Amino acid sequence: MSTAPTRFTVAEIANRFGLEVRGDPSLVISGVGTLAAAQPDQISFLANARYRSQLATSTAGAVVVRKGETATGSGSAPTWLVAADPYVAFARIAALFDRGSAPSPGVHPSAIIAATARIADSASIGPFCVIEERAIVEDGAELGAHCHIGPDCRVGAQSRLYPRATLVTRVCLGKRVLVHSGAVLGADGFGLAFDSDHWIKVPQLGGVRIGDDCEIGANTTIDRGALEDTVLEEDVRLDNQIQVAHNVMIGAHTAIAGCAAIAGSTRIGRNCLIGGGAGIIGHLTIADRVTITAMSLVTHSIREAGEYSSGTPIQESRLWRRNAARFKHLDELARNVADNKKGHRND
Score class of each variant (00 low, 15 high):
residue 3 T to V: 12
residue 5 P to L: 11
residue 6 T to N: 06
residue 8 F to W: 10
residue 9 T to R: 11
residue 10 V to H: 00
residue 14 A to S: 11
residue 18 G to T: 11
residue 32 V to H: 04
residue 46 L to I: 14
residue 54 Q to R: 13
residue 56 A to S: 14
residue 62 A to E: 08
residue 66 R to T: 11
residue 70 T to K: 15
residue 71 A to L: 14
residue 88 V to R: 09
residue 102 A to R: 00
residue 104 S to D: 12
residue 105 P to K: 06
residue 109 P to Q: 12
residue 112 I to V: 12
residue 113 I to P: 04
residue 123 A to C: 11
residue 133 E to F: 03
residue 135 A to Y: 08
residue 136 I to T: 08
residue 139 D to L: 05
residue 140 G to R: 06
residue 143 L to M: 11
residue 148 H to I: 13
residue 155 V to K: 00
residue 176 R to G: 06
residue 176 R to F: 07
residue 199 W to P: 03
residue 208 V to A: 06
residue 215 E to Y: 03
residue 219 N to Y: 09
residue 222 I to E: 02
residue 224 R to Y: 00
residue 225 G to F: 10
residue 228 E to L: 05
residue 235 D to R: 02
residue 245 A to G: 09
residue 254 T to S: 15
residue 256 I to M: 02
residue 260 A to N: 07
residue 261 A to M: 12
residue 268 I to G: 04
residue 277 G to T: 09
residue 278 A to E: 12
residue 281 I to G: 00
residue 284 L to D: 01
residue 285 T to A: 15
residue 290 V to P: 09
residue 291 T to C: 08
residue 302 I to V: 15
residue 307 E to N: 10
residue 310 S to R: 07
residue 312 T to R: 01
residue 316 E to I: 14
residue 316 E to L: 11
residue 323 N to Y: 08
residue 326 R to N: 13
residue 342 K to G: 08
residue 343 G to C: 05
residue 347 D to I: 09
